[in-house]
Amino acid sequence: MSAPLLHNYDLDEDCYRARLVAACSGVALDLRNVDMFPGAEHRSDAYLRLNPLGTLPILQDEMLVLTQPEAILRRIAALDPERRLMPEDSIIAARIDDWLAFWAQHLAPAKAAREIALMATPGDLAALSARTARMLRVMEDHMTHQTIRGLGFFAGPELTLADLALFPAFALSRDHGLDHDAFPALRLWARRVRLTPGFITMPGIPDYH
């Protein structure tokens, strides 16, 4: 069985999520780098045939062509026989589902703000960045409470898929001008995420050590 193929662009945060989840769950991926910017290769005929939405990442695995970031992360994490990012416990699993939905729905402004700031796509940067700050505050309050309960991560005491899905929106927020000053609990959580075996960075997330 060959490794799943990730159609990847290094500066795209969802592509980074897929690489990060694979790295932290010991799943090998084949990468095909796509010239997203400035070449717009993801909107070429060949790519629109594969994914009519014209987005990256795309994961091809056996019979599958997956185009939705959440489905891609879940598929990669499920390929880990140890299931280290998706524990069986049904309460933890429900919390992971909830935070993955939060990411998919409510952190979309973070991705849009960053693309406006870095790739000059059109949009209202100030409004999207302010919306992102509100969502990071929701995360900050949650991690403040988790820390008081003695739980170091979003869904419980251990790092899960939820943490890796949420991490880039926080770690990359300075790309669109949102500092970390108001989020001390998230700052400490991000340091814990960085200590995960296999953790990798991307441009915009400094490699400290």
Partner: peptide, 17 residues
């Protein structure tokens, strides 16, 4: 500027006052 607990040894944080 911060709760002492939140600035762990070997780390830094930005703030504005």
């Amino acid at each position: 500027l911060a709760l002492a607990r939140d600035i762990t040894p070997g780390t830094s944080a930005g703030t504005v006052a």
